[in-house]
Design a protein around this nucleic acid. Sequence first.
DNA 1: AGCACGATGCTCT
DNA 2: GAGCATCGTGCTT
Length: 196
Amino acid sequence: MALDATFFRRPALTVARELLGCVLVSRAGGDETRFVIAETEAYHESERGAHCFGGRKTARNAAMFEAGGVAYVYFTYGMHWMLNVVTGEAGTGEAVLLRTGWPLADGLPLVRQRRFGDGKAPRDPCRWCDGPAKLTQAAAIEGSLNGSPLHPDALLQVLAGEAVGESEVVVGPRVGIDYAGTDAALPWRFRWVGGR
DNA sequence: AGCACGATGCTCT
DNA sequence: GAGCATCGTGCTT
């Protein structure tokens, strides 16, 4: 069952936690890949970690101000794409960064090819996409998908998944935002460590 | 297993 | 012109 606007038009912190165990479906790149979402981070205009801090809208971060249910895709470090799910109501800048996905069995050969070509890959497929840029590479996600809807008829969608219990979730500070000052310590990162 | 570093180009001041 | 919501390699323990 596809998640819809009622799911995404809620606070980023809530959506980040509830996305654990849900399934990202990408038809970008011409073939379908699916991933169980295992790690997320929330971002919000009220804190310095967010690209849209202070509610300042720019050409890059504009999608973060859309109503929840679209993608925010941006480019960083000269070579990497990052996929976020936009959350909340229109006019407020917030989103959830997808950091780790566990590829589902039917797409394993394609995911392996996209990530490693003919080279060697880790034994455990759960380590193939354990980083935001690894996930976008495996899902063939790039800048043209910025602002695109998360919808069953679109290239990207998110399906409801199994419930993930509190005992299987590790909460902690977000990665790579030292510039955010005290906001860098906010416990807005969620990792599902139960499912293996 | 862990750390250091280079790659590489877009974004914003 | 500086810095970045990162990754892979290659070197050290």
